[in-house]
């Protein structure tokens, strides 16, 4: 494999990791707020906080890893995205900052505040919406380059149906992934009331995810036909994604094997996300940046890959320990520890 393909695959894997763990986190924030206003709090909120407290910082690092790695492997992206995304990027950062800190303030600080929880819940939906615009922009058509530099065509973005379909997909996916995970977690915790609520959510948000995906495809076809053609060549990946979606929905509907069901949801998104990513290539930012054209020099590339492998040797055992202590430790999940 060539350096640029290794690089982009690694980054895409981490973005996928972020997609899953952050969706759980973002959605959980929304559900926690929902529980507060619908007065079902005592059931669900404990559950959510037990899962989230030890891991929220780790979630954030997935994101940091992605953007630092992107600039490292493909320095030209810093130039284009940096210039273009100042405003949307700043908005996303501010939302992330509010979310992370108010989570800590609310959770570790002694007083429970509905305002903190509201900020936490609302940002959970706004962040995926604002981050998803980076993917939309990567399809081209929203940046103009001339002798004065790169300009971001905000008007185009806000009036584009494609862009809104991506936002819609991002939000419903967050709720769907989160609900299916929390159903599983509630099941492990033997917290049957919460499980019933979360199961309903998981079933409810399943269909909109598929509808939103189809809308994105339709939007892509008119917005970037080239990409759409390449996606059709990879139809089997999207097909697999649909199959996993159906299995997951079936299991949750039949009230069994919630763990496997969540695994199916992960696979559903894995294939959709990698199908999208693979068909996006060779462009990172259409039509300005391709992976070949923007990859970092070979020396640095090899150094980064080496560090990455060494880093994984450190991370995988640590992550395993974290999951064993908090996710797979039945007593902890049930609140006995």
């Amino acid at each position: 494999m060539s350096l640029e393909i290794i690089g982009i695959t690694v980054l895409w894997l981490f973005l996928y990791g972020y997609l899953i763990v952050a969706s759980i986190d973002f959605g959980a924030g929304f559900f926690a707020y929902y529980a507060r206003v619908s007065k079902k709090e005592h059931i669900m909120s404990k559950l959510i906080s037990r899962y989230l407290s030890p891991v929220w910082e780790v979630t954030n690092v997935f994101f940091v890893f992605f953007f630092v790695g992107l600039v490292g492997f493909f320095p030209d992206t810093a130039y284009y995205y940096g210039t273009a995304l100042l405003l949307p990027g700043s908005v996303a950062i501010i939302l992330i900052a509010i979310r992370g800190s108010f989570y800590a303030f609310g959770n570790y600080g002694s007083k429970d505040s509905t305002l903190y929880l509201f900020l936490y819940g609302a940002t959970g939906l706004l962040i995926p919406a604002s981050l998803s615009t980076a993917l939309t922009i990567s399809e081209g058509g929203y940046l103009r380059e001339d002798e004065t530099g790169v300009t971001f065509l905000a008007g185009e973005l806000f009036t584009s149906p494609y862009s809104w379909s991506v936002v819609f997909l991002a939000i419903v996916s967050v709720l769907y992934i989160s609900a299916s995970f929390l159903t599983y977690y509630a099941d492990r915790a033997e917290d049957y009331d919460s499980r019933a609520i979360m199961r309903k959510f998981a079933l409810f948000w399943g269909a909109p995810t598929i509808i939103a995906s189809l809308m994105v495809f339709a939007g892509l076809r008119s917005h970037n036909g080239e990409h759409f053609e390449r996606a059709l060549d990879l139809w089997w990946m999207f097909g697999l994604s649909l199959v996993f979606f159906l299995i997951a929905g079936y299991l949750i509907f039949k009230k069994k094997n919630y763990g496997t069901a969540f695994l199916m949801v992960m696979l559903q998104f894995f294939f959709a996300f990698f199908g999208y990513g693979a068909s996006h290539l060779p462009y990172i930012l259409y039509p300005f940046i391709t992976v070949e054209g923007s990859v970092v020099n070979e020396t640095m590339g090899i150094a980064l890959v080496t560090v990455f492998i060494l880093g994984l040797c450190l991370l995988i055992p640590s992550l395993y320990l974290l999951m064993r202590l908090f996710l797979f430790d039945a007593d902890y999940v049930k609140g006995k520890k």
Binding site: P54, V61, F65, V71, G72, G311, L315, L321, L322, F326
Partner: peptide
């Protein structure tokens, strides 16, 4: 880019064990 990239691993490492 190398130390910036390595820094993210240091963050990861710290965040995981701090959580624990």
């Amino acid at each position: 880019a190398l130390p910036l990239f390595m820094e993210t691993f240091a963050f990861f490492f710290e965040a995981i064990f701090l959580g624990i």
